[in-house]
Structures are given as structure tokens and as C-alpha cells.
Design a binder for these strands. Structure first.
Lengths: 346, 346
DNA sequence: ACAAAAAATGTAACCGCTTACATTCAGTTT
DNA sequence: AAACTGAATGTAAGCGGTTACATTTTTTGT
């Protein structure tokens, strides 16, 4: 306690100071803080009293070094910009906090190369476990994590065939359900605005879900017009204009997420079309925006908060050992609003 | 390299391994990584070669313990739920990343007690610097940070009178500007839906801005109906209903942020009112939602991304020493859309 | 009351890295 | 060639905790 820290700040008390103040050894202080059960009532009280008299707080770097765990959990998400992951991330963080863990965040901007970099960066930083979005990534990375014994959970997707711990929903089935609904309304000429499907398994599965529905309904899946673009309102707007400019414009445009759908909707209205009378538009995610759009969006409700919370619990279980973590499939439910209606006659 | 890590994972190479492989001392390895300038070309190459042959990555906890800096920067924001802080936080993180720092996140749910807890938690975790939102907090906390010599930046607000490093805009002046515009449209009976002003200086300043405008226009500031509520769409909806139920309902409802405004707008439309013919509604922030609401929202545009980026730069400067950091006032500009119009005759 | 078992506490090594200081080495200067 | 530099490298002492193991204290059984 008598030495000032390197930056000239105020001296910060250490275990040794607390030990001295309480008249015990540093080991006992450490035990009082980490496994209070094994020390006697009397010393526990004595030590805790000293702790808060001195305002002691353990140095996490030292603790991390000695115990080989940082109590930090990393999350690598495609973006924090819009609400797609924000709610889930918030829930994830709340759950971690409740359990004394801290959240490390990095964003990959939907790029695999950046994601890889971030995974390595966060593990180097000592993240005890990781939250990852979707399954698509180089198998090298999965091997890296397995070798290092770093627990991870794949969220926002659920595929029982995949060997990874995951918490999410079946993107393909959810979109299939929505597409069934669309087709049930008499739409025959469908189009789709999607994120890049090459590196984004959720986007890919959603498109597959549409194809499944078409096939089941006797429509040719190849007749589905697909535009792949980035997840932005303007991109949705532009894509929609391209689609309706085609020789046989679709009567329904199924979008890979709500952001694209809102962009498409904006374009439709700007072009003087009536939604849903002239064209139906659907989204995916059910972010706040969806219910508040100029025409409330028909979409698929994704259980953001529960996903975040369950993902945190799964990782904590994986770290703590008990009970063993298990993958969880959460339901994604149709959310029917105003942008979907019967196909115009013709 | 011959010992396996505690969890039974694969052995992770250490400086000692690299040193042995390169035939130098650990000090030299450390220097190659941290100040390559002071070692000879030859050894540098030798060491770097060994580093990537062994796949060595420094252990950050050890590094942090030894060097007394973690290269992690903490951000404590009220919420990640909606887009209010998300864009800024994303920009903040990008800038940190570009400079080899990692972002630690905690959210306070707009509660001072939780914020205090988080500030202490993140500093205990070793955050080298902190991003804080707004000025309002116990002076004990500021003293704590000063004593510990932990740089911090206050963002989303800018008040030259405050002694803290800050990056943001003048909430009062920005709202004043908007209120001037509202009053200029002939509105005389104003109301305001705000977040709690007791613990939220940004909310408070915004309300003060409205009062400034009223005073300047010869209106009695005391005639401003204020409802304080939480930042949620439903809260805005409920507050609006309460306001229009009064004996002399306002012709313009100025909301503390876009989320509240969208709620108010929803309520107005649900009540069968025409916006802006029957009532004007304004927001604040210009989040994505604002431009896409059923009636596009008149609001104040806040430079989210630049704030995040500048805040990061200011902290990096404070840590690096050069150049010395300085507070920055960014402009917040009026964003006139459809929800504001002339007051109805009467 | 005494030995044995159990519980509580202390001692000290170690986690992996940085860095002050000591040492070595190569190049100048005289 | 000796003495003197300054640059490059090595040695080893921490950084602040945790924890295996040793030791002391308390409890239990007879």
C-alpha cells in the first residue's frame, strides 16, 4: 500500500495489504474471496472488514494469470449498427453480468476474414468462451477452438445436424413457414432479396426455406428471382427497384431481414405502388422497426432476448461444468401484419 | 512448450519457448514484439520467424500484469437495446480495433447506481480508459477516476463549462433550435415527453432548451406540460394519450428522443388524429427509425458515428500522451421531415 | 485425557510477461 | 592497440494474485 502505481496514481491496495490489515496470510485472503466456505466465520468477517476498509478490489490481470481464466466472455457479431443483434447482445451481457462475467465485443462486419481475426484476437485476450453468430466459418477455426478447449456457442441458428453447441432457431424451417403462407395467398411469382449467401449460412438457409416451400407447392424453385446485397435499407430499396423492373415482376418479395424489407417497402411506396395490394413484402427478425414501418411488416419473430440469455447460460454451463450445456432450439414464429395479402388477380 | 495447459488443452507456447527456439533471451523476444526499433535486424527476423513457426501469441493477462495496462477500453452505456447508442458504439469499437485495443461493454439501464457499479467493475477489470455517456454522476466517481488516473471521456453531451474531456453536442442548444422551429410554426401550447430529468443530464438539458425557446418567444416556460417516462415506444404512446386527454391539449409534442416520438406518433394515429395536421410531434437523435416511421419524423440529427470515433481517438490520445486530447463539440442539426407543420388554426 | 481425524491457516512456488540494470560486443577515438 | 563509446543483448526481479502442500489448531472418538 506504500507504493504508488506506475502512472503516478493513487496506491492501490493488494492482497498483501489486506492480509496485513487482517492479520492473516495472503492465501487466507484469497480463500475468503474465492471460496468463503472453507474459512472460519471469524476470519471471514475479519478479512471482509479489512477488504472494505481498504477499498480493496482484486487485480483481474493477476487473477487471470494465476488462475488461467479471465472471467471475460467474447462475442463476435456481424454488426452492432442496427437492432438485429443489439437486443440479443444486451440480454447476453445482462446474463453474464449477473454471473460476474464481463463482455468483450468485436464486430466482423459480416466478413469471414475479419471474423477469424477477431476470434484469434479475443482468445489471445483471454476470453474464456465465445459467442459466435451462425455456423459458417472455416473448419480451421473450429479446430483451433477445440484444441484450445475454448467453449463456444453458435447462436442465431440451430441445426441438429451440426456438431456445435448452439442456441437458436431453424432458419430454413422458419422461412419455409413464411413462404408457405405467402404461397397460400396465391402468389406464384416470387422474388427474394437476401444477404450474401456464400458466407452467411443463415441467409442461405432462409433462401433454402423459400425453395422448399415452392417445391412443396409445385412451383419451380428455379423461378425464384434472387438478389443478393448487403444488409442496409438503401440496398433493399435498390434491389426492389431492380426486381420490379424485370419483365415479369414478382407479386411478392420475400426479404432476408427486416432492414431489407423496410428498404423494399420504401422503394415500393416511392414508386407509387400500394402495399400489399400491388405487391406483398415480407421481412425477417421482427425488430422494432418492423411494427412501425409505414405499412406494418409481415415478418418472422426471432426470440432475440431469449437467445442471448440462453447462449450466456450455455457458455456458463460449459465453463462451470454443471449442468452440462445443451443446444437449444427456440421457436421463431410467424408475425403477420399488413404487408402480406392475396396476390393481385391476373 | 512441453507442458499442457490446465484445462487439458493443447500446450500454448510462451516467450520462453520462442526465446529458446530463436536462441535469444526472453527479454529480447519481448523487445522484438514491443519495440522492434531497439533490436538488430538480424535478431528481429530470427525471432519473428520463431514466433510464427510456433504460432506464438502473447498472453494478455501476463502482459497486462507486468506492464500495468490491459489495452482494453471500457464503455458504459445506458442501453444497447435500441439504435440510440448502437451506431456510436460500433464506430467506437472500430476505431479501437484499428488501434489494437479491445472494447469492454457494460450497460447501466439508465440507472446511476448500476452505472457506478459498472464503472468500478470495469476499472477493476483493468480497463485503461472509459467511455461514459453524459455528465450526470456522483462527484465521488469522478474523483475516483482522477485518483486512479484513468482517462475517461464523456460523450453524447458537450458543455464547455464542465471540466471533463468530452465529445458531443450541446443538447440544450440543439433542442432550443428545434423548439424555435416549432414555435415559429405558430405553436403556442407545447408539451414534452422526456426521460427522467433527475438523473439524466441530456434529458434535462433538452427540456431546458425548450424552455429557452419559449422564453425567447414570450411564452411562459411554466406552461410546458412535461411527462417524464422511460425510453420506450409504449411509454411514448401512453404519455401522448395522457397529454391529449388534458383540458387544453398541446398542438405540438416535443419528445426527448425518437423512440418516444415514434410511440407518440403511434398513439396519435391510433386515436385517429392526423399528423401533422392535428398535432405536431418531434423526436431527437435521428435514428434509422425516424425516417421510416408511418409519418417521417422531424427530429434532431445526432452525429453518432463521429462521436464514437472521436471519443475513441480522444481516449487513445489521453493514453498515448500525444497529441494531448481535447474536447470536441460536434454539430447536431435539425432534420425536418413530415411530423411538424403549422399549428392548426384556433 | 490422549491420539487420531478434520478443519483452518500459512508458506512459497508459480502463472507469462516486462523492464531496470548489468553485461557484452562492435565500432570510434586517440 | 588501448580506452572509450553506444548499441544490442542478457539477467533476474517483480507485477498481484492462486493453490499445492505443509503446518497448526480444533474437533472427535474412546
Amino acid at each position: 500500500m506504500d507504493k504508488t502505481d506506475k502512472t503516478g496514481g493513487v496506491p492501490v491496495p493488494t492482497v498483501a495489504d489486506v492480509a496485513a490489515a487482517a492479520g492473516v496470510s495472503t492465501a487466507t485472503v484469497s480463500r475468503c474471496l474465492n471460496s468463503p466456505g472453507v474459512v472460519s466465520e471469524k476470519t471471514l468477517k475479519k478479512v471482509l472488514e479489512a477488504v472494505d476498509r481498504l477499498g480493496y478490489a482484486p487485480n483481474f490481470s493477476a487473477r487471470a494469470l494465476a488462475s488461467n481464466r479471465t472471467n471475460m466472455i467474447g462475442a463476435i457479431i456481424p454488426t452492432m449498427e442496427n437492432a438485429i443483434f443489439a437486443r440479443g447482445l444486451q440480454a447476453f451481457q445482462e446474463e453474464l453480468q449477473k454471473n460476474g462475467r464481463t463482455l468483450l465485443v468485436a464486430s466482423s462486419s459480416y466478413r469471414s476474414d475479419l471474423e477469424e481475426e477477431q476470434i484469434r484476437a479475443l482468445t489471445a485476450r483471454g476470453a474464456d468462451a465465445l459467442l459466435l453468430i451462425g455456423y459458417h466459418r472455416d473448419s480451421r477455426l473450429y479446430e483451433f477452438l477445440e484444441k484450445r478447449r475454448i467453449p463456444y456457442v453458435v447462436a442465431w441458428a440451430y441445426d441438429p445436424a451440426k456438431p456445435h453447441l448452439s442456441v437458436g432457431f431453424n432458419n430454413r424451417a422458419a422461412m419455409r413457414q413464411l413462404a408457405d403462407e405467402v404461397i397460400g395467398k396465391g402468389h406464384r411469382k416470387l422474388a427474394c432479396i437476401s444477404a450474401d449467401t456464400a458466407e452467411n449460412d443463415r441467409a442461405r438457409e432462409r433462401v433454402n426455406g423459400i425453395r422448399d416451400a415452392m417445391e412443396a407447392a409445385g412451383l419451380d424453385p428455379a423461378s425464384l428471382d434472387i438478389i443478393e446485397t448487403s444488409y442496409a435499407i438503401d440496398a433493399g430499396d435498390a434491389a426492389f427497384r431492380a426486381l420490379v423492373g424485370a419483365k415479369t415482376p414478382p407479386t411478392a418479395v420475400i426479404c432476408g431481414n427486416d432492414v431489407l424489407a423496410v428498404g423494399a417497402l420504401r422503394a415500393a411506396l416511392a414508386l407509387g405502388m400500394n402495399v400489399p395490394e400491388d405487391v406483398s413484402i415480407t421481412g425477417f427478425d421482427n425488430i422494432e422497426l418492423a411494427g412501425l414501418a409505414p405499412v406494418p411488416l409481415t415478418t418472422v419473430h426471432v426470440p432475440h432476448r431469449r437467445m442471448g440469455q440462453f447462449a450466456a447460460q450455455a457458455l456458463l454451463a460449459a465453463l462451470g461444468g454443471t449442468p452440462p450445456p445443451h443446444s437449444t432450439e427456440l421457436p421463431a414464429e410467424l408475425c403477420l401484419r399488413a404487408t402480406l395479402a392475396r396476390a393481385p388477380a391476373g
